[in-house]
Design a protein around this nucleic acid. Structure first.
Length: 469
RNA sequence: GGCGCCGUGGCGGAGUGGUUACGCAGAGGUCUGCAAAACCUUGUACGCCGGUUCAAUUCCGGCCGGUGCCUCCA
């Protein structure tokens, strides 16, 4: 299986570093608000990548994701929403609430939450791990204490013969004016970043003593992922995922922290980044009024899995243009796939013999090839759409095929229930009326079924039902 | 200013140096009690200008447009 590696800007063959299990870390949400569809698309990518590695790549996967549950935004919102609580309690309440909402969103868009190991940045073990790493970095001269916290010294890192700029080369020419002129912090160098921030008024804080200084405060953003990934997966691990916005500085800084004290310069073998969603061709922003959450999509009557299809219909490394019209297309495709899956319940649609079974085999093999090719989900979905564009299914083979498709795409096609006996009786009665050429009764029964969300079409083998919408 | 990515038919969106992507929507037809589905047919697609080539949407250069990163945003 090949995957584009931001580190090398090349397609890289995926081989588990330990020979059997692909260890994967996905930068998770900052849990201070509802995730927007851009956030969610990143998690559809991570989820689909894991599925592809397991099913198409045939490797075991250990997949970890963090919740960033302490930072400026979570703290600010927690004080707004829970002003009468202590800072720690308020933070707990806020982040607990949004973790719940996030997990619900994940499930609704078909991401397998159960396949993920989650960890919170404020987990005591993580806090301890961060303090330990900061202490060791400080001891070796990679960190220094300033007025408002502890900073990582990029200069020291470079002097140790290490490369800062593995993902994005930084130099005087491409450093923004704002950054150079930013002397708000007591930093030795413009690119140095905070490992630890000392407490400000009303902020939750953890005790921390470093080199005799009492530095009660909270962790910086980047150190969280360095410690969590290592605690859960070890180092180096195989794949680090995230949105393109995280390439710099977040992932660059993670690499620096994680490798400063190591002889191995590698934090993760492959960094895989998904590009952003555009809405009507524009960057999504609240001020442009093109900013959506999953609830907005559901409120317009779309199935959440429609969004998943929409994301999978394009390549993860290209900008997806989200439009309501394209979501309509995705919804219709989803309805079609479900109607196809429902054919397994209907004798009128069954076709035995090797023809369909062979087609299943070919289509599946094409899908797996597409996914092995840098996760070309658009290509894979094309084969799926073609496969499902039929009135017939092989009753012997369809279920196992649906099971595999669900493992691959998460579109929940495999366990769709049959219609009720009452509905089947209605269909039979209507067919009898139709045979008797009693068109008024026949149409009345058809309308009755339509009222229950069941539409019928008459074929040479008898009526076939499908669910509306 | 620096470093990138992208520009494909009504919409979305793959891909390729010379042959139909695909999905959705549209038009005409066959079929049908009606309907739906199915099937058949159909729409001068590759931002603009040059260059390389027997041949470019596909490679190269320029231009125009979109978009991203360059301090905490997926």
């Amino acid at each position: 299986m090949k995957l584009y590696n931001t580190l090398t800007r090349k397609l890289t063959e995926l081989q588990p570093l330990d020979g059997k299990t692909v260890r994967m870390y996905s930068c998770g949400p900052t849990v201070y608000d509802h995730a927007h569809i851009g956030n969610l698309s990143a998690y559809v990518f991570a989820d689909t990548l894991r599925r592809a590695i397991q099913v198409a790549g045939n490797f075991d996967v250990q997949h970890a994701m963090n919740y960033t549950d302490v930072d400026d935004k979570t703290i600010r919102r927690s004080r707004e929403e829970f002003p009468s609580d202590t800072p720690h309690e308020a933070l707990q309440k806020l982040t607990g609430k949004y973790i719940q909402i996030f997990n619900d969103d994940m499930r609704r868009i078909g991401n397998d939450v159960g396949a993920l190991q989650f960890v919170r940045a404020t987990d005591p073990k993580v806090i301890w791990g961060m303090q330990d790493l900061i202490s060791r970095l400080h001891k070796k001269g990679f960190a220094y204490i300033a007025d408002d916290g502890v900073y990582f010294s990029i200069d020291a890192y470079r002097k140790a013969g290490k490369t800062y700029g593995q993902l994005l080369e930084l130099n005087a020419q491409n450093t923004s004016e704002a950054r150079i002129q930013n002397d708000e912090y007591d930093k030795e160098s413009a690119h140095d970043f905070a490992l630890w921030k000392t407490q400000k008024d009303g902020e939750p804080a953890w005790d921390f003593t470093l080199d005799g200084h009492s530095l009660k405060g909270r962790p910086g953003w980047h150190i969280e992922c360095s410690v969590m990934s290592r605690q859960l997966l070890g180092q180096p691990f195989d794949i680090h995922t995230g949105g393109v916005d995280l390439i710099f500085p977040h992932h660059e800084n993670e690499i620096a922290q994680s490798t400063a004290l190591e002889t191995d310069p590698m934090m993760a073998h492959i960094f895989a980044h998904n590009d952003h969603i555009l809405v009507d061709g524009k960057k999504m922003s609240k001020s442009a009024k093109n900013f959506y959450t999953l609830d907005d999509i559901v409120a317009k009557g779309y199935d959440p899995l429609t969004f998943r299809i929409k994301v999978l219909q394009s390549h993860y490394r290209s900008q997806v243009n989200f439009t309501w019209e394209s979501l309509d297309a995705a919804q219709n495709l989803l309805t079609g796939l479900r109607a196809w899956a429902d054919l397994k319940h209907q004798k009128a649609a069954h076709q035995r013999g090797g023809e369909l079974a062979a087609a299943y085999k070919t289509a599946l093999s094409n899908m797996l090839d597409a996914l092995r090719n840098d996760l070309n989900t658009a290509e894979a979905l094309r084969w799926l759409a073609q496969l499902a564009d039929t009135e017939q299914v092989d009753p012997e083979k369809i279920q196992s095929l649906l099971n595999i498709l669900d493992r691959l795409f998460g579109l929940v096609l495999a366990d769709r229930p049959d219609i009720t006996h009452e509905q089947k009786d209605l269909i039979a009665s209507r067919e009898a009326a139709r045979q008797a050429k009693d068109w008024p009764l026949s149409d009345k029964l058809r309308d009755q079924l339509a009222g229950q969300g069941i539409s019928l079409r008459d074929t040479q083998n008898g009526p076939i039902w499908s669910r509306l919408g």
